[in-house]
């Protein structure tokens, strides 16, 4: 009997991005409330954000071309809806938060420096008002992503500890996906 699992590449992407996004959220919230630590946090925040954007694109393609395991039979409709809906939102935010961040720096006429001389072109016109809107949106979307992460993390543990339906293991197992047990 095969164990229902995400493909190994999907699991690697998931856990890599989980660490990066969680670190990113903590760096972001810490950075705007700090003074002496601001600069080094910001110098990680920008390249890490772009790395997340690139990985999100790879992950979306991977998700579209490779089969994900189906949800267990017997899972109530509302729970299926919550599972699918929250994942659509997670994917949307993995793109939206870094893109809004990049656009926001562009609108403020900041150079989007990744490292040393490596920088990105602006993707939005210079405008104070636009910067202001995007800056507020960046925080609001990031806080939504954090709330969604908490729900995702809590739900994963409920699957593991309460429902014991194998959903947690489909992503958390270290086993190779194809081997017979």
């Amino acid at each position: 009997m095969t164990h229902y699992q995400f493909p190994a590449f999907s699991r690697v992407l998931h856990w890599l991005m989980a660490v990066m996004i969680l670190a990113m959220l903590f760096i972001g919230i810490g950075m705007v409330a700090s003074v002496t630590e601001y600069h080094w946090l910001l110098s990680i925040h920008r390249p890490l954000g772009i790395a997340i954007l690139v990985l999100a694109a790879i992950r979306l393609l991977n998700r579209l071309v490779r089969q994900s395991p189906p949800l267990p039979n017997g899972m109530p409709t509302t729970m299926r809806f919550a599972a699918h809906g929250s994942h659509v939102l997670l994917y949307a935010l993995m793109f939206a938060v870094p893109l809004v961040g990049w656009a926001m720096l562009s609108a403020a006429r900041y150079p989007v420096v990744l490292y040393g001389a490596i920088h990105l072109p602006p993707i939005a016109p210079q405008s104070d008002q636009l910067y202001s809107i995007l800056r507020t949106a960046h925080t609001a979307l990031a806080l939504t992503l954090f709330a969604l992460f908490l729900a995702h993390f809590g739900a994963a543990l409920v699957h593991r500890l309460v429902f014991r339906d194998g959903v947690f293991e489909s992503m958390a197992s270290l086993r190779s996906g194809r081997r017979e047990r």
Partner: peptide, 29 residues
Amino acid sequence: SEYENPRPHYRLWPPSPETITSLVTIGIA
């Protein structure tokens, strides 16, 4: 192909003592 537990229970009410313990642990985390 099957999930490990062929008959997962999605009913939370009435909660068993184990369910309560698990939910409290998750809430704390």
